[in-house]
Design a binder for these strands. Structure first.
Lengths: 107, 107
DNA sequence: CGGTATCCTTACAGATACTG
DNA sequence: CAGTATCTGTAAGGATACCG
């Protein structure tokens, strides 16, 4: 039982332990998106919060940020290989959410 | 694409979308625990925060709370069937965390 | 032992205005 | 378009004291 010394679950939490990061991953799993697209697809997030989460995730090696030297500016975000590997986690969250809804609906 | 209208990932987030709840599930997956044991095994959580999270999770049908009519008091927490089914999510978080550590260690 | 009540401090997040 | 700067409100969380 290595739970105490750097439990892997806590490692994962430290990287995607907030709601916004999970939603960012979810939306980038569909493919590369521009800043504005991402903001729109997440829905209720502000530019400030989106930016700060993206910066952190970039630092942690989960996403790529590609800036085009154009006017008006164009910035594309995509998942790195590491970021994409989070698909397994998101998939299990998706499945669980679905069956939870089913159970609740049945009440 | 039903992402907009009640995405299952968001459903899951709404139930275990905070760090503490994930850790509570993780520790209860080992089996029934008393309040004090749970508090100790999670580590840095305060009684107030632990109590409020447990209450919410009880309400949502993820955990059971069993009170023994004894002095001194004894209260045991365990996962419901629904709560236990979150093991799949925790498992994938565990695996991902492990491989992330490996990748980072290799740098 | 397993909480509650209270106070207090910060982290998180929304709104708005502005810029390269 | 893709941010940054600033200001502000709110809620999460820690510390402490106390209770059944």
């Amino acid at each position: 039982m290595d739970r105490k010394i750097n439990c892997p679950v806590e490692v994962t939490l430290s990287l995607i332990g907030n709601k916004w990061k999970v939603l960012i991953i979810r939306d980038l799993l569909e493919g590369t998106k521009r800043f504005g697209e991402l903001k729109k697809s997440i829905g209720s997030i502000s530019a400030k919060v989106l930016t700060s989460n993206l910066r952190e995730m970039e630092e942690e090696g989960l996403i790529n940020r590609k800036v085009y030297a154009e006017v008006p500016p164009k910035v594309e975000y995509s998942l790195t290989e590491t970021g994409y590997s989070l698909k397994s986690v998101l998939d299990s969250m998706y499945s669980w959410g679905e069956s939870y809804k089913e159970v609740k609906g049945r009440v």
